Simulated scan of single mutants.
Amino acid sequence: MKDLVFAIAICTALTSPMLLAASKDTATPQSASRTQSPDTAAFDKSLAQFREQMKTMQAQMNQIRQTQDPQERQKLLQQHWATMQSAMTTMRGMWEPGMLGYRGRGPGMMGPGMMGGGWGHMGGYYSRLTPEQLRQRQYMTDQYLQMQQEMMNNMMWQQQYWMGPPASPQ
């Protein structure tokens, strides 16, 4: 159980756009923040790239399930892990400034004050969006959440195969 919780924590940390936002000093003064239309074309391009990576991971997982050789399984698991890392990089790139309509932070990312009122940069953000921008944001958010779910599933499968089959009671 601890291993499963650990795997979930790692996946959440690796796919969290907060890590990217926190690692960059891209804070802009509130007066400089302007509503920017999400770049759906760039998002769709990244989404297509992610879907290809997911197909590759599915094929790798099928090979892992079919192999009986432990050494071959380890090799395939390492390849699967590398593909997952690449997919996570693609996902993180989708939070670059402007990609989803934000200037420097993912949705709801807190600024330097963190718990002490760090949400000020988001004040009124959604109320300034046009209906079309809101529709674009919702589309991208829905797609991104699905991508996170798929990555979580792959992390859990990866964990299961690294641990091996459960021991049978004797």
Rank of each mutant, 00 (worst) to 15 (best):
Trp81Thr: 12
Asp39Val: 01
Thr141Cys: 00
Gln78Glu: 10
Pro17Tyr: 13
Gly106Leu: 11
Arg51Val: 09
Trp157Val: 06
Thr26Leu: 10
Gln138Tyr: 03
Pro166Cys: 05
Thr15Arg: 05
Met57Lys: 08
Ser168Tyr: 09
Gly113Glu: 14
Pro169Glu: 06
Ala87Arg: 06
Gln36Ser: 11
Pro97Trp: 02
Gln133Ile: 02
Gly108Lys: 06
Glu72Gln: 11
Gln63Met: 08
Met18Lys: 05
Thr89Gly: 10
Tyr102Pro: 06
Thr35Ala: 15
Pro166Arg: 07
Gly113Cys: 05
Ser16Lys: 05
Met109Ile: 09
Ser86Cys: 04
Met84Ala: 12
Ser31Leu: 02
Ser37Arg: 09
Pro107Phe: 06
Asn62Trp: 00
Leu47Gly: 04
Arg128Gly: 07
Thr35Lys: 09
Thr83Pro: 05
Ala87Asp: 11
Thr26Asp: 14
Trp95Ile: 12
Gln49Pro: 02
Gln66Ser: 06
Thr40Trp: 01
Leu4Ile: 08
Met99Trp: 05
Gln66Gly: 00
Gln58Val: 09
Gln53Trp: 07
Gly123Leu: 14
Gln133Val: 04
Gln58Ile: 03
Asp142His: 02
Met163Cys: 01
Leu76Asn: 01
Gln30Phe: 09
Gly118Ser: 04
Phe50Asp: 05
Arg92Leu: 15
Met122Tyr: 15
Gln68Gly: 01
Thr56Pro: 02
Asp3Gly: 00
Arg92Glu: 09
Ala59Tyr: 11
Ile10Met: 13
